[in-house]
Amino acid sequence: MSRSPNPVFLERASYRQRRLRDAARLIPFVGIVLWTIPLLWPRDVPQAPSSGDAVIYIFGVWVFLIAVTAIVSRYLRLDDPATDAGDDG
């Protein structure tokens, strides 16, 4: 019934894992922000981005997210004994 308290400070490897998880949690929000930015682009003015620019931007963000996720997932360990609780460290 009593949960064993999680350690407050961690060694380097576990600390890295925790930060990787933070990164993994953050990625979708980065994606949301980057993909809503084009809504703020100016329209109907001469210097407005062209259709091609919009295509390149949207697909560029896509590639960026895929690359970051691939790197983070590559190093993220699922079997870490520490659970979700108390993810600070």
Binding site: R21, A24, R25, I27, P28, F29, G31, I32, W35, I58, W62, L65, I66, V68, T69, S73, L76
Partner: peptide, 13 residues
């Protein structure tokens, strides 16, 4: 396709 991409990259959630 952007929506599922966000769900997948946010798989940890």
């Amino acid at each position: 396709y952007l929506g599922p991409t966000l769900v997948m990259v946010g798989w940890w959630w």
